[in-house]
Design a protein around this nucleic acid. Structure first.
Length: 419
DNA sequence: TCTGGGGTCCTAGGACCC
DNA sequence: TCTGGGGTCCTAGGACCC
């Protein structure tokens, strides 16, 4: 039987904060989103205190801190670096790995024939990561990705080994009886509410439902999920990372913005950042979009819009992108609304190596422009030193990150010190 | 007073064609 | 009353994920 492993880091961001702060091992930890807006990660202790995922920080701040909880602003430089280390270790342990998110990876275990060997292998992986990086992980093993997700979910209870293997039909079905349908990978709020109405309450109900019913009432996506729950592999491990199809840079603002003069430099920052990402991907885009919206919690003054512009030739030149967003804003911005969030989206990608030049464009100019962007990217690699005139001279948008931990592993000035 | 950011995939419906 | 039939391509928006 082909087996798939899912490695999932325990409370990843909270665990990252602990790596260089062993004094916080038993202390509740929460990590906040940008602007210290809401809670995006919690340690086990914080979960036990009843802190919910996504809850606005201001609502729980007082009581949480009073009970001795510790709080951090998000430190993605640290999380990203520790993630990279974990994925690197795993990548060396199996032939094929799919990095699914910053804290999850699917492992191809098809070289392992026997279940008990897979189990031992997983324990070895877990131990190595803990020893070399200091992050606790759990591992679920099963014949399909969807079942491996469930196995890793069940592994939360296996505090000793952190590994759960679901391979036999009766064990799988029994396990599914205790899993609510909304906890199945791919079943969100909308779907689970519709399924519940059709008396499909547990993952077991879903696995044993009539397939034609699913196909006619729902979608092919759900059908795949059902098949996967039955042990039929529909989703493969994607060992190579597919090129991105879109790039988004967006932020919520700390203070509401209602006029173009304030918004424009911020949007320009997003555009510059998006351009950097695009070049880093080795791609060009044919479309740039700008979106801005008022707060979804403001019921009185509502406005949201997304506006596109197409380039006649694919580009990854920041100056083109900046011209694009400027044109879009000039044409579409509606003053007078208290905007809470905005962003820039790049799409319709093509490879950088394919140069489709227009009739009136010189290849030399293209080369020079390309070299200029490369040069700016290399100067700005660690710290922005070259700005475009349209930009706001700050990071991305004036953001509150008052409780950020040091970038222990990625910045010379913030290395941990031992006294 | 304060409510994240960055992705993917699928589908319905419109535009357009003969 | 009743307004062809059968395609393709594109896009916006919804649902989902972490």
């Amino acid at each position: 039987m082909k087996l798939i492993g899912l490695v999932d880091c325990d409370n990843f961001y909270a665990s990252c904060e602990r790596v260089f702060r062993p004094d916080l091992r038993k202390v509740p930890i929460v990590v906040l989103s940008n602007n210290d807006g809401c809670v995006i990660a919690r340690s086990k202790e914080a979960k036990n205190m009843g802190i919910k995922m996504g809850v606005p920080w201001f609502q729980v701040k007082q009581s949480y801190l009073a009970k001795g909880g510790k709080v951090f602003s998000s430190n993605f430089a640290l999380y990203g670096d520790l993630s990279k280390r974990i994925m690197h270790i795993l990548g060396n342990m199996v032939k094929n790995i799919e990095i699914y998110s910053i804290d999850e990876a699917f492992l191809d275990l098809q070289h392992i024939q026997k279940t008990h060997q897979a189990h031992e292998f997983a324990i070895h992986c877990r131990k190595t990561i803990h020893q070399w990086v200091g992050i606790p992980v759990r591992i679920g093993i099963a014949p399909t990705k969807t079942l491996a997700k469930i196995a890793s979910h069940v592994a939360k209870r296996e505090t000793k080994t952190g590994v759960v293997c679901l391979n036999k039909r009766d064990i799988i079905l029994n396990t599914l009886k205790n899993i609510p349908v909304n906890e199945v990978w791919g079943i969100g709020r909308q779907l689970s509410s519709h399924l519940n109405k059709a008396k499909i309450i547990s993952a077991y109900d879903l696995a044993t439902v009539n397939m034609r019913f699913i196909r006619t009432r729902f979608s092919i996506v759900l059908e795949r999920t059902v098949r996967e729950l039955r042990g039929e592999q529909c989703l493969e491990i994607q060992g190579f990372s597919n090129p991105k199809k879109q790039i988004i840079v967006s932020r919520s603002f700390r203070n509401r913005i209602d006029n173009l003069e304030v918004l424009k430099p911020l949007i320009s920052n997003f555009a510059v950042k998006a351009g950097e990402k695009l070049r880093h991907e080795g791609q060009k885009c044919s479309q740039v979009s700008v979106f801005f919206s008022t707060s979804p919690f403001n019921k009185k003054l509502k406005h949201r819009g997304i506006y596109n512009m197409n380039f006649s030739n694919p580009t990854n030149d920041t100056r083109d992108i900046l011209t694009g967003v400027k044109t879009i804003l000039k044409k579409n911005f509606k003053p007078g609304y208290p905007y809470a969030k905005a962003g820039v989206l790049l799409s319709r990608f093509s490879s950088e190596s394919i140069a489709q030049i227009s009739l009136f464009e010189e290849t030399n100019t293209l080369k020079q422009n390309h070299a200029l962007m490369k040069c700016i990217d290399s100067i700005n690699q660690y710290q922005t030193q070259v700005y475009f005139t349209a930009q706001h001279h700050s990071n991305l948008s004036p953001m509150k990150l008052s409780m950020k931990s040091p970038r222990y592993t990625t910045n010379w000035y913030e290395l941990p010190s031992v006294n």
